[in-house]
Design a protein around this nucleic acid. Structure first.
Lengths: 219, 219
DNA sequence: ACCTGAACACCGTTCAAGT
DNA sequence: ACCTGAACACCGTTCAAGT
């Protein structure tokens, strides 16, 4: 073997790690809407096409970013009581994605999740079985919980984005022009909703959903 | 008044109605991802900027399209039993949006809905009160139901899009390259999920959610 | 192997000019 | 008032060429 096989030639300017680091920075500092291949390349003083030598396409990039984040998560504690285990699993999913809004697009087609996520899903289905549901009902229960979680996250992200951009989005303007009478009503609703949106409200709804799913005497 | 004030000058080639008709056609025939201002203009043998004379921007266009569709909906029947009324309201929202996936983006910021939709929301909150919840819990119940509905719709749309595009989306390829071991498992899951996704599964989960929200003895 | 530059096929929107 | 054409500031991705 040639001992000088390393460090010969031009040093690599790009690497997966460096790309992921820069992408992470853009994501956290400016949000997913600012992460583009062109922008990423510019921030690394490179060209868009150089990136394609390290990732297959933008989807793979986003997927890798999700892997990086989930790997950083502390391992979830698993309560003994099965109902608590179900709740804990849902909270884990919720937390994981609350930090990575941009990953929603990749995750919404079902079953397409990375290994840590899949483990949470399996834990939840097992917990539902331990609560007395048969396998079919347990899978169904998981899905209902997932839909609730997904919907909550979606609304959460949209609200945050709206706040970041101020109140003068094109939609906001359209709202005004379409139904001026409705606006005070909606503004009132908005205030209520912000109040409601605090921490703990996901948890509260989750318990209702879980209890509804675990209730006895339903086929 | 001048009786020849109509039909003088060049006839208007574009109109809101014609624009909405063409946009509707593109939406139903090819999906929201093919609806762009440029494409719309081309289909009408016009230029992108001509459209901006009739709608403020693309958001307003989408909003108008949603108005058109909701106006076409048959008026929902309102059952007497409050729990049934709550379920019927949720089903109406679900149906309405199941026909208009492209409207999801506009709807997810809360409270930002057109008049027919707002009426459904009010009906649901009233029904929850009639079920014995106070106003705060009734609003909360509505939101939990909405999150569940939204999540279900989101997964539904993504699945449909994936089916339309075949199995070789960039994501699918990324999945293979990342974890080949995982794939058979996920493929199995996918089959189960498709089976589960049939009609009636939204309804079944909805009842569990509603019963969980209406259960007695919870603060 | 790694990177560049030009190009392809798109976006939504603005601006100045035409009739 | 209604419409056009050119332009601005973007996208993701491909292709052919450079070192």
């Amino acid at each position: 073997m040639e001992s000088r096989s390393r460090r010969v030639g031009r040093p690599r300017r790009l690497s997966r790690e460096a790309i992921l680091r820069t992408a992470e920075r853009i994501l956290t500092e400016e949000g997913a809407e600012h992460l583009s291949m062109r922008r990423l390349a510019k921030d690394m003083s490179s060209t868009p096409m150089a990136l394609y030598h390290h990732v297959r396409d933008k989807d793979e990039l986003l997927l890798l970013l999700l892997e990086v984040r989930t790997a950083r998560l502390p391992p979830a504690e698993l309560p003994h009581e099965p109902r608590e285990r179900l709740l804990a699993g849902a909270r884990s999913l919720h937390e994981m994605l609350a930090d990575s809004p941009w990953a929603m697009d990749a995750l919404t087609p079902d079953g397409r999740v990375n290994t840590p996520t899949r483990r949470i899903v399996e834990t939840m289905i097992d917990a539902a079985v331990a609560c007395g549901l048969n396998h079919e009902r347990a899978r169904h229960a998981y899905r209902v919980i997932w839909y609730y979680t997904l919907g909550e996250l979606l609304v959460r992200f949209h609200r945050e984005r709206a706040r970041r951009q101020g109140d003068s989005t094109p939609w906001e303007r359209a709202m005004h022009s379409l139904d001026p009478v409705a606006f005070p009503l909606l503004a009132g609703l908005g205030a209520q909703l912000t109040e409601i949106a605090g921490t703990g409200h996901y948890q509260r709804g989750l318990e209702a959903v879980v209890d509804g799913l675990l209730r006895k005497g339903v086929a």
